[in-house]
């Protein structure tokens, strides 16, 4: 139980992953599938970001002191959050936006073709 109080971030990620996957496969409405896709991707983004957190650290922009006009930067790694995971997730966010745009485009096309976004009705119309 004590372990859970520290590491509930992983549980949250797992729950979100499950919700996202369920919505992507099981939902009937195409827009809801897109929403599931967003949840799924964001769960992974949260996983990476929480992986890069360090207790008592700040954002990964180096602090400095100024002595007689000369800036000295502090470069101890434990002072700053992990920059690597943040960069990876910046990429993943952009990819997520692009995928969502593409999926919504297709939904729009499907809607103008069949007049509905419900998967079972579309399959009925395809025959």
């Amino acid at each position: 139980m004590e372990w859970l109080q520290i590491n509930y971030n992983y549980l949250l990620v797992i729950v979100l992953l499950m919700i996202g996957l369920w919505a992507m496969i099981g939902k009937n409405n195409l827009v809801k599938k897109c929403i599931g896709m967003c949840i799924f991707q964001n769960a992974i983004i949260m996983f990476f970001i929480s992986m890069g957190a360090k207790a008592g650290s700040t954002i990964p922009i180096l602090n400095y002191t100024k002595v007689n006009g000369v800036k000295t930067y502090f470069t101890e790694a434990s002072m700053y959050a992990n920059p690597l995971t943040q960069i990876l997730m910046l990429t993943a966010i952009v990819v997520g936006v692009a995928t969502l745009g593409m999926a919504l485009t297709l939904v729009q096309k499907i809607y103008s073709e069949y007049g509905t976004c419900e998967e079972d009705e579309i399959l009925k119309k395809i025959g």
Binding site: L21, M37, F40, I44, A92, T99, A103, L106, K109, I122
Partner: peptide, 29 residues
């Protein structure tokens, strides 16, 4: 025509595949 629906299914499954890969990389990281 029917390509839209077929591609939409591919988008959903392809995204699941890519996300699984990304999650696997995350677990290794």
């Amino acid at each position: 025509g029917r390509a839209y629906m077929a591609t939409f299914n591919y988008v959903i499954l392809g995204t699941i595949g890519a996300c699984f890969y990304l999650f696997g990389v995350g677990l290794l990281l």
